[in-house]
Nucleic acid binder design. Structure first.
Lengths: 116, 116
DNA sequence: TGAAAATATAAGTGGATTATTATATGCTAA
DNA sequence: TTAGCATATAATAATCCACTTATATTTTCA
């Protein structure tokens, strides 16, 4: 296997610990194929808004996701410039697609907010 | 990227949390190229024997490593039959080789124990 | 301008995780 | 058969983590 980047073991452990949480790991898998805002995650995970915001902040602090304000929403996406991007990509390839979660939202009309 | 196995997200998060610890991650990286016993890890990590045993037990409980008694020593190795093996392998490829740690032990004559 | 929506942040709490200390187990060799 | 080594296990203490509740900030729109 050819690997593009070699990570410091300490940094790698930090990233793995971050992703070693079901909510954050699922978030990142979803963000791998869609941009998303906090309110959507709140729906998907049936969690409180502060809980979701706190998970996202950890991912943002580590540089794994980035944010872009769009009106009153803040849209999150994977940060492709992150030094961990290819590492995370490789992980994600082992996980089942989670797009059905967003599709469910769409069917409930709960995804209009971040459409476009 | 072609991936051999797809893991349940929940299981994947569990494995990532396990590996999201510098000591355990380094252990697994070392075991990727060498079998090892507890006393060697104690030396390498300058940690207490119970602390090391407890880390190893977590890896063993998850099926990532297996043990084989050899006289008074117990030799640990990566469990290639684990359903997580290819997942873990992929991770490890991103990490720098840690063989120098065992080489240091050898130079101090502290590796005789597990030689075979 | 003021109300409402989306999000962030702070403080506090309970549960999980890690290390320590103490003790038990299993094997070897004298 | 007993002493010593390697390792496991149990109990406990300290630290960390994720969630909750409460509040602040930013933006939109009427």
């Amino acid at each position: 296997m050819q690997v593009s980047t070699t990570l410091d073991i300490e940094k790698a452990a930090t990233i793995l610990k971050l992703l070693g949480d079901k909510t954050r790991l699922t978030m990142v898998k979803i963000l791998d194929s869609n941009d998303c805002c906090v309110c959507e995650f709140v729906e998907i995970f049936k969690a409180s808004q502060p809980a979701i915001s706190q998970h996202i902040r950890k991912l943002k602090d580590a540089g794994i996701v980035r944010e872009a304000r769009r009106g009153q929403w803040i849209i999150y996406s994977l940060n492709k410039e992150s030094e961990f991007y290819s590492f995370v990509q490789n992980l994600l390839h082992h996980l089942p697609n989670q797009d059905f979660k967003l599709q469910e939202l769409e069917e409930q009309g709960l995804r209009i907010s971040c459409d476009s």
